Computed example of a mutant assay.
Amino acid sequence: MTTLTPSALDTGPSLADAAARFPTALWNDSADPDELRRSIGFGAVGATCNPVIALNAIKSRPDVWLPRLRALAEENPTWGESQLGWQAVKEVSIEAATLLEPAFHESAGRNGRLSIQTDPRLHRDATALVEQAVEFSQLAPNIIVKIPATQTGIVAMEEAAYRGVSINATLSFTVPQAVAVGEALERALDRRALEGLEEGEFGHVVTIMGGRLDDWLKAWTAQRRILTTPGVLDWAGVAALKRAHQIFVERGFRSRILSAAFRNHLQWSELVGGDLVVSPPMDWQLRINENTIPASDRIDVPVEASILTELESLSEFTRAYEPYGLTHEEFAQFGASRNTLRQFLDAAAQLDALVRDVIVPAA
């Protein structure tokens, strides 16, 4: 198996080098303003967020958010925990979006986007997802809204995109999900064109949470007592991301693939060179730079044949890798989808609990 090390490839100053030399866009995997400012220094031109990240951003700044939550409760005496918590998430997002406005204007809307995710508790209701997406899109001109890549969510994405909302697909781990979202966004853009609506740059992106695909395959093989060559499963998300990007290019989709949920540097270094987005958390950005991981054009370099052959011997990987390996009905039941949705729902519940402790402190 090939192991990529700095000595194996050309050297370079990693993130900033890639941002300067390739169309690959760096986004920060957090809306925390302090982290985002630092990431912009590395060349970041966007940011992503989800309920877990939003909760952590609020918890990391108690000096700011606890007083603000108390003030919001006083200003809105009829609001419950969820309304107050989501208002805080909106305010975090608006602050971060302001930092990205220069990149938004410079790229004519292709980058400079701040992702805000719809409430995971709405995952079964397409109409509610569309309504919240439209609401969130009005928070700032450079907002991009995350909707889950389930059968219900894809219906919502197509309608929201038709209404002019910039879309970032989330809860997405597989090539079939990415292709289904790409197709839905094309239909939405075509509908707008047919009706003479604005055809500007919406900056749509389609996430594949590559590291979470790796996580699921490790759990799936362990459950079945399947032994794999050490390190092979760390390439699963990379393989899916490369294939999805290739399909998007071949089909001329007007959205881009986004790499998220980092578990190793390959989920950045193997994608550099392509017209796509990589969104590492701050700690991964620091580690990539500290280790001077090379910024080389590797997007079209295939995963080593022996690795891909072993991955394709796993039926669960094949379902995730083949463009139509999963039906739309199966998207929500895929193991990584269920596990991640539960984490998102738990984060929403934790945010409610945090707000509850503020507005109804224990006696």
Rank of each mutant, 00 (worst) to 15 (best):
V89A: 06
A108H: 12
F42E: 08
V145I: 08
E74F: 08
R110T: 07
A73W: 11
T48K: 09
N142K: 12
L99C: 14
A44N: 11
T127V: 11
E106K: 13
I143H: 02
E131K: 12
R68W: 10
P62W: 03
L129P: 01
G109C: 11
R110G: 13
A149Q: 07
L129G: 04
T152A: 11
L114A: 15
L55H: 00
T127L: 02
L100W: 05
A73M: 09
I53N: 02
K59P: 00
S93E: 02
Q83I: 01
A126E: 15
A57H: 00
D63F: 05
A57W: 01
W86Q: 03
H123R: 08
A149T: 12
A133V: 01
E95Y: 05
K90D: 14
F42S: 08
T152G: 06
A156H: 10
G112Y: 14
P51E: 03
I154M: 11
S137G: 14
F136C: 04
H123F: 12
C49F: 04
L99D: 15
T118H: 01
F104K: 01
A133W: 07
H123V: 05
A96E: 04
T152H: 07
A126P: 15
L84N: 03
N76V: 01
N76W: 02
W79Q: 11
A133P: 13
V64A: 02
V134D: 03
V130T: 03
R61L: 05
E135F: 13
H105W: 03
N56F: 04
R61I: 00
A54F: 00
Q132K: 07
V155T: 10
V92D: 05
T48V: 05
A128L: 15
P148Q: 06
W86M: 02
